[in-house]
C-alpha cells in the first residue's frame, strides 16, 4: 500500500496484520506502541516498592493487583507492537534495558514515599486513561484491541489511587501536608505528561494523518485539566502558583514558559539523573533472569 492510500483509508481500526502497510506507518506505529508498552513496565517498576510498603493488607493486595495489571498491559501492548513486524518483543525489552527505549516523563522520577503514590496512581494514571480512551479509535487494530482490555481494567487503578488520596487528604494534619508537598513536586511533571504544545511535537502530524492518534496533545491536556484540576481542589490541594494556569473561555491555558522544558527533553532522551537510576534498575532485573529465558527457549547447552 502506498502512503497516500494509507492516509486516505486511515480510520478507527482500519489496518491489521494482513494489510501491506507502508514502512513509514509500521515504524511510526511501532514507535508509539513501544513507548506506551515501555511506560507500562516503567510505571510498574516505580510502584512496585509500595506493594511492600502499603500500610494495610488491603492496600497491599490492591497494589500488587495493580502492578500485575500494568505488566499485563505491557504484555498486550508489546504484542500489538510486535504484530507490525518491525521489532520483536525481545528487541523492545532489550532496548528498554539498554537505555534506547523511551517512556513517559513521569516515570523517570523516583518515588520513595507512600504519600506520593496518588500522584501516579490518580493523576498520572488518570491522564494516561484519558489518552488511552481516545486510542480505542486508533487505526492499528491490534492496538485498539489492547486498548479495549486496558481501559476495562484501568478504572480500578484510578479509583484505587483516589481512595488512597482521599484517605491522606482527610487524614492527620501531617498527612495532608505531606500530600500537598508531593502534589507540588509532581504537578509540573504531570502537566508535562502530554508533552509540549502541538507545534513543537515532532511525531504528531504523521501519527494523526495515518489515524494512529485521534486527539492532539493540547486537546488531551485540556480534557485532563477539565476533569482533574477540580478533583485536586476538591481534596483540598492547593494548585501551585507556578506554572500559571489561566481560565480563558472555559479553557485552561498553561503558561508553558513556566515549565522546565530543558528537563523535559533531558527526560525524553533518557538523560536525566532519575532516568539512569530507573533504567539501570530495570536493566539489572532484566539481565538477572536472562538465563531463564535462554533455558526455556532452548538456547543453552
Amino acid at each position: 500500500m502506498e502512503l497516500q492510500e494509507c492516509k486516505a483509508r486511515a480510520g478507527p481500526r482500519e489496518f491489521g496484520p494482513h494489510d501491506d502497510l507502508p514502512r513509514e506507518y509500521r515504524e511510526a506505529a511501532t514507535r508509539m506502541i513501544q513507548f506506551h508498552a515501555n511506560s507500562e513496565i516503567m510505571g510498574a517498576y516505580l510502584e512496585r516498592p509500595f506493594i511492600r510498603q502499603s500500610p494495610s493488607l488491603d492496600r497491599k493486595l490492591a497494589f500488587s493487583a495493580k502492578v500485575q495489571d500494568e505488566i499485563g498491559h505491557g504484555q498486550l501492548l508489546y504484542r500489538a507492537a510486535e504484530s507490525l513486524g518491525v521489532k520483536t518483543r525481545e528487541e523492545m525489552l532489550d532496548e528498554l534495558a539498554n537505555g534506547e527505549g523511551k517512556f513517559l516523563n513521569c516515570f523517570h522520577y523516583p518515588m520513595t514515599e507512600w504519600w506520593e503514590t496518588p500522584m501516579i496512581a490518580f493523576f498520572v494514571d488518570g491522564a494516561a486513561m484519558r489518552r488511552q480512551a481516545t486510542i480505542k479509535r486508533t487505526s492499528w487494530e491490534p492496538y485498539a484491541h489492547a486498548m479495549d482490555k486496558i481501559c476495562f481494567e484501568e478504572g480500578f487503578h484510578i479509583k484505587h489511587g483516589e481512595h488512597i488520596m482521599r484517605e491522606l487528604a482527610t487524614g492527620s494534619r501531617r498527612e495532608q501536608q505531606l500530600l500537598q508537598e508531593a502534589f507540588e513536586e509532581w504537578w509540573p511533571r504531570i502537566l508535562q505528561f502530554f508533552g509540549p504544545t502541538d507545534d513543537e511535537s515532532t511525531h504528531h502530524d504523521f501519527a494523526a494523518e495515518v489515524g494512529l492518534k485521534t486527539m492532539s496533545n493540547d486537546e488531551l491536556r485540556q480534557a485532563f485539566l477539565n476533569a482533574y484540576l477540580p478533583k485536586a481542589t476538591e481534596y483540598g490541594l492547593e494548585i501551585p502558583d507556578e506554572p500559571r494556569i489561566r481560565e480563558e473561555d472555559g479553557r485552561y491555558v498553561v503558561e508553558e514558559d513556566d515549565l522546565d522544558w530543558e528537563e523535559f527533553w533531558a527526560v525524553a532522551n533518557n538523560d536525566y539523573a532519575g532516568s539512569h537510576e530507573q533504567i539501570d534498575a530495570r536493566a539489572s532485573a532484566h539481565d538477572a533472569v536472562a538465563w531463564v529465558r535462554a533455558t526455556i527457549s532452548g538456547e543453552t547447552a
Partner: peptide, 26 residues
C-alpha cells in the same frame, strides 16, 4: 479478590467518562 474490581472503591466516577465506562464494563 474484590480489590481488583471497581465496585470495591467507594469514590465517585462521574468526573471522567472513561472511568465511568470502565466502571460500567466491570
Amino acid at each position: 479478590k474484590t480489590y481488583r474490581w471497581v465496585s470495591a472503591y467507594n469514590v465517585d466516577v462521574e468526573f471522567a467518562k472513561e472511568i465511568e465506562d470502565s466502571d460500567r464494563e466491570q
